Amino acid sequence: MAISIGDIEIQDWELVESFIRASGPGGQNLNKVASAVQLRFNAKNSPSLPGPVKARLSKIAGRRMTADGEIIIEAKRFRRQEQNRDDARARLAALIERAATPPKPRKKTRVSQSQKRKRVEQKRKRSEIKAKRAKPNLAD
């Protein structure tokens, strides 16, 4: 069951899943069953990801990415192993989907002359109002 995000498809052999014991609700079953999932994906060496996506993914992943370029996602929201497995894969897909969409280029804008004049005029008026609040100088 490969993960597909647009034209990017990550094969199962690129994903390493290990099952660990989860904390939280579960009663006696909690100490016997490894229901949490730790999903590992080596993004740095993945042939499925283009270069720009890898670069954006390393910024977006943050502390989930190791120094070796491996993304680690732990899923332990649910009591069932299958649900946690699907959750981990969905979170990885969402992360890659965010990295796959390039950011919009910033358009440079300038403040218009009329806006600059308006700002200075407002400052001048405010200054006059504050000056009128001052105590009169009786020495004059």
Rank of each mutant, 00 (worst) to 15 (best):
A43Y: 01
N45P: 09
N45C: 14
N45Q: 12
S46T: 03
P47F: 00
S48V: 08
S48E: 08
P50G: 05
P50S: 06
G51A: 11
G51C: 04
G51I: 02
V53A: 14
V53I: 13
K54C: 05
A55Y: 08
R56I: 10
R56Q: 04
L57V: 03
I60W: 05
A61P: 04
G62Y: 08
G62D: 02
G62K: 04
G62T: 15
R63D: 15
R63V: 07
R64Q: 11
R64L: 11
M65I: 02
T66W: 02
A67W: 02
A67L: 09
D68H: 04
I71T: 02
I72A: 05
I72V: 14
I73D: 02
E74H: 10
E74V: 11
A75D: 06
K76C: 01
K76E: 15
R77W: 05
F78D: 06
F78M: 00
R79F: 07
Q81H: 05
Q81P: 01
Q81N: 02
N84P: 05
R85D: 11
R85S: 15
D86P: 01
D87S: 15
A90K: 14
A90N: 06
R91F: 09
R91S: 13
A93W: 01
A94N: 09
A94V: 10
L95A: 07
I96F: 03
E97F: 05
E97A: 15
A99D: 13
A99G: 04
T101K: 07
P103I: 09
K104S: 10
K104C: 11
P105Y: 00
R106I: 11
R106H: 10
K107Y: 10
K108G: 02
K108H: 10
T109D: 02
T109M: 12
V111D: 06
S112D: 03
Q113T: 09
S114Q: 15
